[in-house]
Design a protein around this nucleic acid. Structure first.
Length: 354
DNA sequence: AACTGGGTCAACCGCCCGATG
DNA sequence: CCATCGGGCGGTTGACCCAGT
């Protein structure tokens, strides 16, 4: 037996909202709030609409300070980055873009950004003529069986890669190194402090490229995104970025990045992210250059400090000096925290008196 | 002018999850 | 512990628009 419908389908209006309906809904919510009950709300104001429909209309269209269209390059970059990192968690992505709704971003991604990236990918692949099946298979295989030692309840899914190039002194495979090693194997270079270097010594760690995990969340406080330039440089970031949870007062949108199992690494990304993976393979150096540009040439740090990482960068001493110190603290928090909790933006801030 | 195909986006659907009784 | 409910979310749909033919 299925569950009862949330409203009487026969008696609710569907389809586009009329200006009158908009006015009614907006006026009521601005004055009274939702009352904490969307289902009852349409009856209160005499709308023949499903409560969920009202909620959607309010959140996606009527709510104050909503912006539609006109996505900036920075917003593009943030969306792409976050998508690559966390997948199609549109509400989380939207939380980082003030005035944007998850629906808007979802539409924008599906209709424009995805094509933009793939178009770029094809171009570059044609230019390089590289085939990336090996990488693709490796990604899939390796991602199936890795959990970070010491992590409980919350699982980070970094692909476990045996280091064919560099032996690891530590007793466990550091996920950062795994990623780095993979990229090295695939031809990426991790220079100490200069793009000229072609050694395998790593100071660039894609795994440190993590979205802010402890930025106090607020709709009017987007990330400083000045340095993000995925589309214009390497086309994408590493899809190897894991997701993680953090509990630092429960105020960040990234408290929510919770994964439930290894398959979630590429949740929602199977098709597109695989293609992005190929892109990464074919552009590994560009990507890394992008990272260097992002962090400055010598600030990339392997926070996990293994034998393969030659530099415990002095500049790392003050992670706050980095454009995104949260990337690092985020990882640390991942290792320490265990309570994943899904949260979303605080709707109450939009609803006025409840 | 009519048709067509692709793009866009608002809205719906159905599932999941937490709260509650 | 279980059933029910409402909120929230991601995926999908379909109406509309527009450029090309």
């Amino acid at each position: 037996m299925g569950r009862a419908p949330c409203c009487d389908k026969a008696n609710v209006k569907k389809g586009p909202w009329s200006p009158e309906e908009d006015t009614k809904l907006k006026a009521y919510i601005e004055e009274n709030g939702t009352g904490g009950n969307w289902i009852a709300l349409p009856q209160k104001i005499g709308l023949k609409r499903c409560g969920k429909s009202c909620r959607l209309r309010w959140l996606n269209y009527l709510r104050p300070n909503i912006r539609h269209g006109g996505f900036s390059e920075e917003e593009d970059n943030i969306i792409c980055s976050l998508y690559i990192s966390i997948g199609s968690r549109w509400s989380i992505i939207a939380a980082q873009l003030p005035g944007r709704t998850d629906n808007d971003i979802k539409n924008y991604w599906n209709t424009k950004l995805k094509k933009k990236l793939l178009g770029k990918q094809r171009k570059e692949q044609q230019a390089r003529g590289a085939t990336c099946l090996t990488f693709k298979h490796e990604m899939k295989r390796e991602s199936e069986n890795y959990t970070v030692p010491g992590m409980v309840n919350q699982v980070a899914h970094w692909p476990l890669l045996q280091p064919p190039v560099m032996p690891l002194p530590s007793t466990h495979q550091d996920p950062h190194d795994s990623i780095r090693n993979l990229l090295v194997r695939l031809g990426g270079r991790f220079s100490d402090n200069h793009p000229h270097s072609s050694t395998t010594t790593s100071t660039i760690n894609p795994m440190n490229f993590r979205y802010p995990l402890d930025v106090p969340f607020a709709q009017d406080q987007p990330y400083d995104q000045n340095s993000m330039n995925i589309l214009s440089s390497a086309s994408s970031l590493s899809p190897l970025n894991s997701t993680c949870s953090q509990v630092t007062g429960g105020t960040t949108p990234f408290d929510v990045i919770n994964v439930d199992g290894p398959n979630d690494v590429f949740q929602g990304l199977d098709g597109f992210q695989a293609e992005l993976s190929e892109l990464i393979y074919s552009n590994s150096q560009q990507i890394l250059d992008g990272f260097e540009g992002f962090y400055g040439t010598d600030n990339m740090v392997d926070g996990s400090s293994t034998g393969t990482s030659s530099v415990e960068s002095s500049s790392w001493g003050d992670i706050n000096s980095l454009p995104y110190p949260q990337f690092v603290s985020g990882f640390e928090a991942c290792q320490q925290q265990t309570i994943p909790q899904v949260s979303t933006y605080d709707e109450s801030s939009y609803f006025g008196p409840q």
